[in-house]
Design a protein around this nucleic acid. Structure first.
Length: 1040
RNA sequence: GGGCGCAUAGCUCAGUUGGUUAGAGCGCGUCCCUGAUAAGGACGAGGUCCCAGGUUCGAGUCCUGGUGCGCCCA
């Protein structure tokens, strides 16, 4: 006996029960232990920040990260799954700052880095329990107890090792980087932070002139014009920049004979009146390269290589003069271009962004406040040409609402740009899903990869393990705790900044202190393959078996993130990609296509959706969408419901149907001989096809394609196999056919539970648990993935059944058209098709049609022309390549063919077409023939099949129809009175003569159908009179 | 501004190497059926395949240029 199964199923509650079972019986553990000696399938989990609750993006990635390992486990692999936590970085620092009420860097330092870092440490795990709960509830199997955290000492020591590897390979260097900087917080911010608080503001916009030194070019009084919205950067001007292809014109101002040089495209903006100037000369920007000019101010007048014209493509003529003033400390392009021209930057601002003594006139003034004074000084010196203001959007500090400035910050870099080719070559070894993300998006990113800035002027992170001598001459990079101990004599067991910065040591008479920066937390996630196992301090042996990963999965937004950092470090350290297969998922948006926003509340709480429909439904909904191929998904709760109704409920009902009848009959699983029943053979063939299709898609990491075949199979199983097999389960005697039906449906459900297990782990477990026998594994997730090796495949049968389904569909369509309900038996249906592959199984196939359409006979024939006429078109696909343009002549000729001519061609004749004097012979293969039902007959056709329904009714048929109507009515009575399907009943009835006649003629049939033991006429019966096909009747039933 | 992607029925999406009637599910309307099913079936309405050019005998599909949306970067 199986446990009784209700067709009313509460999926969420059922899932909770399965979770409890997995937990109690340690099924996840067992699924690993069982494969302990098997080949390893290596999975790396990208660490999330746990600074908030998991959202749909996490659930999606988590589902993908669950399905593939479950599938591979069932395929016989050992798949370790360790959860990882990204503990460091700004998100957690921001939380700690809020909690401690610390506005900026200065405040943190004042409060003490130790206080701050310990606060961060204590807050990192705030949401861990919530994460664990939600991830587990989604059915994801992942090891939380053996997780890795980027703040673990082991992890951080491996980071040192990785850093030292780069150091030893000469890939680490220091340079400046232009970053958004908050003078109020005295700290640089990330671009990301700067992007979050733009305001529209008014700033000065001035144009000033720079006198050329070379008088031979445009005469003695020539000036370059440059435009800027940051006058305070002008004291630090060290160069001008022009675009190489831009035309520059020198014009003489007729009012004072001064000559100005600017982009021709900008001339009209500065000299709107054409009679106010005279054109002297036009040159390309490239020709101006190297021209010297007199500095605006003399603060840095002796600076090397400076005060000349540089050339770069970045210059545009969208605004300004087409000549750009360069202050390399305060602009990204400025910095890059000047560095390439060997111009050292100058930065005369202090930490609070006030001018230092290097610019004595403005010393002590905040840079922005100095704008006015600088403008006045330029005006007084006659160097200001034009002055106005501009309204534009400008980034502000989120915390203090002061404007940010861009300035050069010292930073550590990993040299990457010379690895572009190598990384691209390694990337070509990676299998990306979808393909284009790898070849295009990521490939293009690698093709112009820039050096990687890995340092952050922050507090809570892995430290850059470099100690620098006080004179700045020497640096020592530590690769392990032991090494640090060797130099310093200090043994540390915590590698965070507030501990390490206290480690100071002497060597060769110099004092060494640690460089203050911490590492970008992307460095840590990129180093996760090594650091999670404390490589090389532990687990050095067999490392090559755990690197690279066979599989990773993350969102599209990781192109620049984890995918990239994994690739960079893998390339430098091992010259191998860090992963072999990667599934890239898209973004989960709210139902309206907007981003999900906590503020707008435009999406339902994940937990609530799971509690309402179950995790299986949520998983399936997401996986069966293009979001697993990096496209966006507008998350619709109704879609989850739909999936439940379309797939999960039908699957459950099929199972519930089976258990109900198997229990009624006391059927037990048995070793069965192969069924010869056509439906059995067909559904097994379909099942095997399902398994093949799913396997192929999963081996290609195409999850959406893996799910798609389930839809068709569930449809075939419920609406054809079970629907057409129902009566086989009801027959009271235990004949072979009935047993075979049980054998088949049992095997189908058991196998289906295994094929579906990776995708919908709960419902499949529930089904499997009830169906399994003692000798089978206790969980579906401990089973092997079904593999048949072609045992049941029968493509001919698939095709025959498809024809039968088409015939039935056409028959139903005709019944509907002629208003003949299916309960009314009809004489028969004619099926005409030239494709007689059906013949092989014709008797059994015939019966399927007869039962489904309620007809007394099915006549198969090859002659379609009695039922339909033919018309033809050329088969463009085959003829197109042969005929080219002439196909049009051919089409006209073919269209004229009549039924007789086409019949002849189908019989083997050829049709000759005149193509511009050239005879072309066409055979049946060159034609696409369509069947058009003849007028006045109940005929329908689809493809190569034509059917005709015999619509005439006879008294016998009508009487039988009435009997069936009666059966239907009584069945509904049974149901409405809540009887069990196996309950026997007593019936009393009254009715018209026709009803009585139908009862006496079909008495046995009726009683069998409704399980009646007695069926008595009672002319005085008191019951509601009902109408059956226009006849009156009334019934009372009672349980026997 | 650059790279990449997406755009097909009211909604969610399929659509093979280009082949002549562009499909499915849901939703909607009408009818039918129900002895597993919160179900199932039939029929119907609903499309400028984002726009404009081009290649081709033939374009939802290939090419060019736009538009809108998204991600990443600047």
């Amino acid at each position: 006996m199986f446990d009784p199964v209700s067709n009313k199923i509460d999926f969420p509650r059922n899932e909770e029960e399965m979770l409890a079972f997995w937990d109690a019986r340690s099924i996840f553990r067992k699924s690993l232990d069982q494969r302990a000696d098997a080949e390893e399938f290596v999975f790396y989990d990208g660490p999330p920040f746990a600074t908030g609750l998991p959202h749909y993006g996490h659930l999606l990635a988590g589902t993908i990260k669950d399905i593939v390992p479950r599938y591979q486990t069932m395929r016989g692999k050992y798949v370790e799954r360790r959860f990882g936590w990204d503990c460091h970085g700004l998100p957690i620092e921001a939380l700690a700052q809020d909690d401690l009420g610390l506005a900026g860097t200065t405040a943190i330092v004042e409060a003490g880095v130790d206080v701050f870092n310990e606060k961060c440490r204590s807050m990192v795990q705030t949401y861990v329990n919530e994460w664990r709960k939600t991830v587990t509830r989604m059915g994801r199997w992942v090891d939380f107890d053996n997780d890795y955290k980027t703040m673990d000492t082991d992890f951080m020591e491996s980071i040192w090792w990785v850093f030292q590897q780069l150091w030893d390979k000469g890939r680490i260097y220091k340079a400046h980087r232009i970053m958004p900087y908050s003078w109020k917080l005295t700290t640089p911010l990330s671009n990301f932070e700067a992007n979050r608080n733009y305001k529209d503001v008014q700033d000065p916009a001035i144009t000033c002139r720079f006198k050329l030194k070379d008088e031979s070019l445009f005469g003695p009084n020539a000036h370059f014009l440059a435009w800027t919205t940051t006058p305070w950067t002008l004291p630090s001007n060290l160069a001008l920049c022009v675009g190489p292809e831009i035309d520059y014109v020198a014009v003489q101002d007729l009012s004072d004979d001064t000559v100005y040089v600017m982009a021709e495209a900008r001339l009209a903006s500065y000299f709107p009146k054409e009679d106010s100037y005279a054109r002297l000369k036009t040159v390309k920007g490239a020709e101006l390269a190297g021209q010297g000019y007199e500095p605006l101010f003399d603060y840095f007048a002796d600076h090397e290589n400076s005060f000349r014209v540089l050339v770069d493509d970045f210059v545009s003529t969208g605004d300004g003069t087409g000549i750009v003033h360069m202050a390399p400390a305060y602009g990204e392009d400025d910095y890059r271009i000047c560095r390439d021209a060997d111009i050292e930057l100058v930065d005369p601002l202090d930490a609070e962004a006030c001018f230092t003594a290097k610019v004595p006139e403005f010393a002590g003034q905040l840079c922005k406040d100095a704008d006015k004074g600088i403008i006045r000084a330029l005006k007084d010196a006659g160097k200001l040409v034009h002055q106005s203001t501009i309204q534009h959007s400008y980034p502000f500090c989120e915390r203090t609402d002061t404007p940010l400035i861009y300035r050069a910050i010292e930073a550590w870099y990993v040299k990457v740009d010379d690895l572009r080719d190598k990384m691209q070559a390694l990337n070509n070894q990676v299998h990306w899903t979808p393909e284009y993300v790898g070849s295009k998006r990521f490939g293009n990113w690698l093709a112009d990869a820039n050096d990687w800035n890995i340092s952050r002027n922050r507090f809570w992170g892995s430290c850059i393990p470099v100690w620098v001598s006080e004179d700045g001459e020497d640096s020592i990079c530590m690769g392990s705790i032991e090494e640090l101990e060797k130099y310093s004599g200090v043994k540390v067991d915590d590698l965070h900044k507030h501990i390490l910065d206290k480690v100071v040591f002497e060597k060769d008479g110099k004092t060494y202190r640690r460089t203050p920066e911490v590492l970008d937390c992307w460095f840590e996630s990129g180093a996760m393959p090594y650091a999670q196992q404390h490589f090389p301090f532990e687990n050095a042996e067999g490392f090559e078996n755990r690197y690279p990963a066979d599989f990773i999965a993350e969102g599209l937004d990781q192109t620049r993130g984890w995918f990239y950092t994994l690739m960079v470090l893998g390339t430098i350290l091992f010259e191998k990609p860090a992963f072999k297969n990667v599934v890239v998922n898209g973004l989960v948006l709210a139902e309206d296509g907007q981003k999900m926003s906590k503020r707008l509340k435009n999406y339902p709480d994940p937990i609530e959706v799971i509690d309402k429909y179950g995790a299986d439904a949520v998983r399936l909904y997401m996986i069966y969408s293009p979001v697993v191929r990096a496209e966006n998904l507008a998350f619709a709760e109704d879609g989850v419901k739909q999936i439940m109704r379309d797939l999960l409920i039908p699957m459950w009902n099929a199972y519930s149907f089976f258990v109900t009848y198997a229990n009624t009959d006391g059927w037990e699983p048995r070793k069965a001989a192969r069924s010869e029943n056509l439906l059995d053979r067909w559904i097994l063939s379909s099942l095997e096809k399902l398994s093949e299709d799913v396997t192929a898609a999963m081996d290609d990491y195409d999850l959406q394609s893996a799910v798609r075949p389930f839809v068709r199979f569930i449809e075939d199983l419920t609406n054809w196999y079970i629907r057409r097999s129902r009566r086989r389960f009801w027959k009271s005697e235990d004949d072979d056919d009935k047993l075979q039906a049980y054998d088949t449906l049992y095997n189908v459900l058991l196998t289906l539970s295994k094929i579906g297990a990776p995708f919908v782990p709960f419902i499949t477990e529930s089904i499997y648990r009830n169906l399994r026998t003692e000798e089978m594994p206790e969980s579906v997730h401990l089973c092997d993935f079904p593999h048949f090796a072609g045992k049941h495949r029968d493509p001919d049968l698939d095709k025959q059944m498809a024809v039968v389904q088409t015939v039935v569909q056409l028959g139903r369509s005709l019944r509907s058209e002629y208003d003949l309900k299916v309960r009314m038996p009809l004489k028969g249906i004619h099926v005409a098709t030239r494709d007689m592959s059906l013949k092989q199984n014709i008797d059994e196939l015939k019966h399927l049609v007869m039962e489904e359409l309620n007809v007394k006979e099915v006549w198969f024939g090859e002659d379609e022309t009695a039922l339909a006429t033919y018309s033809a078109k050329p088969n463009f696909k085959t003829l197109g390549p042969k005929l080219g343009k002439k196909i049009k002549l051919c089409a006209a000729s073919v269209a004229k063919l009549d039924t007789d001519e086409i019949t002849a061609i189908l019989g083997g004749d050829t049709h000759t077409v005149d193509l511009d004097g050239e005879a072309f012979e066409m055979s049946a293969d060159d034609l696409l023939i369509s069947r058009n039902p003849r007028e006045g007959l109940a005929v329908a056709s689809e493809g190569q099949i034509v059917v005709a329904l015999e619509t005439a009714l006879t008294p016998e048929l009508e009487q039988e129809g009435l009997a069936r109507e009666l059966v239907s009515r009584l069945q509904n009575l049974r149901k409405s009175q809540g009887l069990e399907v196996s309950d026997r009943i007593q019936v009393r009835f009254r009715g018209s003569e026709a009803v009585q006649a139908a009862v006496s003629e079909h008495r046995e049939f009726i009683m069998t159908e409704i399980l009646a033991l007695g069926f008595e006429f009672d002319a005085t019966l008191e019951a509601e009179t009902v109408e059956l096909n226009g006849e009156e009747a009334a019934f009372v039933i009672a349980k026997n």
